[in-house]
């Protein structure tokens, strides 16, 4: 199978969906002529023109706002928020408008809006451009939150997000854009809400997503040489969470480690871990372990940035502890 980058996979998904459905359009800061800060929308403007690929003013609230309005009036907008760190600027639009409109209008209107954004560390961009704020969005009923880790998942899930009749927050990772992975030529989609077992194992389950999924897989590969058989599950969708796959795995391994890049307190792992407590308590053989980002504003120093988020060695150490 051909291998393409995560960026190309997203670009293909957008292009194919815009070709397939004339109500799909893109809008965001510098996404048209410049092709997007991370190049995801490259060449789309040339192909589809001003009407369907729009540069917007620097106003996140306006970007999401026009997306909601367009969605309510029959379009399928894909808007881009350049950094997830800017989400607070449009949280009113997301939390109070996009997420609630369908409910508050008794289902008479819907909001088929996709908000693409990107987060995470790795480029030494400091406290305003390196956050992982997905946990904030998990707290808003009415949203779906998708965080793919591979090119294949990115393409298939973005297509599903665009076709979904509800607002979907699609969170990419700045360090994944250049990573290549197999993606078939032919059309496919991946359903939202289904986790993926990236590596089967029997000793311990690692639940992860986005870039930390790759760290977890790398750690699992190294641990395999020490005879520790790790099962790595890519959550892919954080909301709704695929508890069936998680439960099945925990019944087998009885031990869970959640690896997440966001800050630990009130983070994604807190929610996932608590759901496991509620639904899988009888199958646990050890306390649920979280390997998460430090509770600090992200440092600009590349050395400190590395210390502030989980590393492969941390995963290896914790897996060894929990399985010893």
């Amino acid at each position: 199978m051909r291998e393409i980058t995560y960026r190309q996979a997203l670009n293909e998904a957008l292009k194919e969906e815009m070709e397939r459905d004339s109500t799909v359009f893109s809008a965001g800061e510098d996404i048209a002529i410049y092709g997007g800060a991370y190049g995801v929308t490259a060449d789309l403007w040339k192909k589809f023109g001003d009407d369907r690929v729009k540069d917007t003013p620097i106003s996140e609230s306006a970007i999401v706002g026009i997306g909601i309005g367009a969605a309510m009036t029959g379009m399928r907008p894909v808007v881009e928020i350049m950094y997830i760190d800017f989400i607070p600027l449009c949280l009113e639009q997301i939390a109070n408008q996009a997420a609630k409109i369908r409910y508050m209008f008794g289902g008479k209107t819907k909001v088929p809006l996709t908000i693409r954004t990107e987060g995470g560390t790795g480029r030494s961009l400091g406290a305003h451009h390196s956050q992982s704020l997905e946990a904030w969005l998990l707290h808003i009923p009415g949203l779906k939150v998708v965080m793919p880790s591979t090119s294949y998942d990115a393409k298939g899930l973005l297509k599903s997000a665009i076709r979904d009749d509800n607002p979907v927050i699609f969170i990419e990772h700045k360090m994944l854009y250049n990573i290549k992975g197999p993606v078939p030529e032919e059309e496919y989609t991946i359903p939202i809400g289904i986790a993926d077992i990236k590596k089967e194992g029997k000793d311990v389950t690692i639940l992860s997503y986005s870039r930390m999924m790759l760290f977890s897989l790398e750690a699992a590969k190294i641990l395999e040489k020490d005879g520790i058989n790790v099962e790595v599950i890519d959550l892919r969708t954080l909301l709704p969470l695929d508890m069936e796959t998680i439960k099945k795995s925990i019944k087998k391994t009885n031990k869970v480690i959640i690896v997440e890049e966001d800050t630990k307190t009130g983070g994604t792992g807190a929610e996932v871990g608590m759901k496991i407590m509620e639904e899988c308590f009888d199958y646990l053989d050890a306390p649920i372990k979280r390997i998460a980002g430090a509770d600090v504003p992200m440092p600009k120093s590349p050395v400190l940035e590395k210390i502030a988020i989980p590393q492969i060695d941390d995963i290896i150490r914790e897996v060894k502890l929990i399985t010893s």
């Binding site: 009885n254 308590f281 009888d282 199958y283 646990l284 053989d285």
Partner: peptide
């Protein structure tokens, strides 16, 4: 006695 849920069961 400190015991994990699955061990207890």
């Amino acid at each position: 006695i400190k015991v994990s849920p699955v061990a207890k069961k």
